[in-house]
């Protein structure tokens, strides 16, 4: 396979396959969670479950001071790489073009040098959280193969994207193809690993808040 055939394959059939698996997988998993539902609470409601649910979705976005004191490092590094991923994925001009093409919605991009710098910061933050995971005895004990695997799948597109933009090492068509392929791997693994938290996060927060809200307590 020549580099052009490789590039055409990842831009064509491979992207179709990855998109199909990603879309089907995410929808199935969300529907499964929603349809399963929860046991009816027979106790008398002391507050609104819905209000509690929505409140928690928002309040949990900021850590309380106790959590911050206990694991401030994890929090900061986590915020940095999540924000970094948001910027590099959703505010880089070529990426917005893809979203616009597929979903028909676009928005202005950030200047390329800003995205470029953000990518470097994101890579550093991701490496730091991995080192922390390995160094911290509790985190290491809790970590399974999947945790390292999804870390790898997450950092790969950022690194390949950075290398492809700066055209380092290999012929540029190959670099771009590798970058797109790494994204496709991420898309395929997304619904079936902990990466799905990007979608399930708000469902679980809502349930937490709703349970507390029903009981009339703040969560």
């Amino acid at each position: 396979m020549t580099e052009t055939e490789f590039l055409l394959w990842v831009r064509g059939p491979a992207f179709q396959i990855a998109t199909a698996i990603f879309v089907v997988g995410i929808i199935v998993r969300i529907l499964e969670i929603l349809i399963l539902g929860r046991k009816p609470n027979l106790a008398e409601a002391r507050g609104s479950a819905v209000a509690g649910g929505f409140r928690t979705i928002i309040t949990r976005t900021w850590p309380d001071s106790g959590t911050f004191k206990r694991s401030g490092f994890t929090l900061i590094a986590g915020y940095v790489f999540h924000t970094g991923l948001f910027v590099t994925i959703l505010l880089f001009a070529p990426h917005i073009l893809v979203i616009d093409e597929v979903l028909g919605i676009g928005w202005p991009a950030l200047p390329t040098p800003v995205v470029d710098a953000t990518a470097v910061i994101t890579i550093i933050a991701l490496v730091v959280v991995l080192l922390h995971r390995i160094k911290d005895p509790v985190l290491r004990f809790l970590s399974r193969f999947q945790d390292y695997f999804v870390w790898f799948l997450t950092i790969l597109p950022v690194i390949t994207g950075y290398v492809a933009f700066h055209r380092i090492g290999l012929p540029p068509p190959t670099l771009i193809a590798i970058h797109i392929l790494s994204v496709e791997l991420l898309m395929i693994a997304f619904p079936f690993t902990k990466l799905a938290h990007a979608f399930t996060l708000f469902i679980s927060r809502w349930y937490n808040g709703a349970i507390a809200g029903y009981r009339g307590v703040n969560s």
Binding site: L8, R11, G12, P13, F15, Q16, T19, A20, F22, V23, V24, G25, I26, I27, V28, L31, P94, H95, L97, V98, E101, V102, L103, G104
Partner: peptide, 18 residues
């Protein structure tokens, strides 16, 4: 950066299947 095939259709069909 845009995929060469009709991805919007794939998303639509994928969503329906999902």
């Amino acid at each position: 950066s845009i995929p060469t095939e009709d991805t919007a259709r794939t998303v639509l069909y994928g969503a329906a299947t999902g």
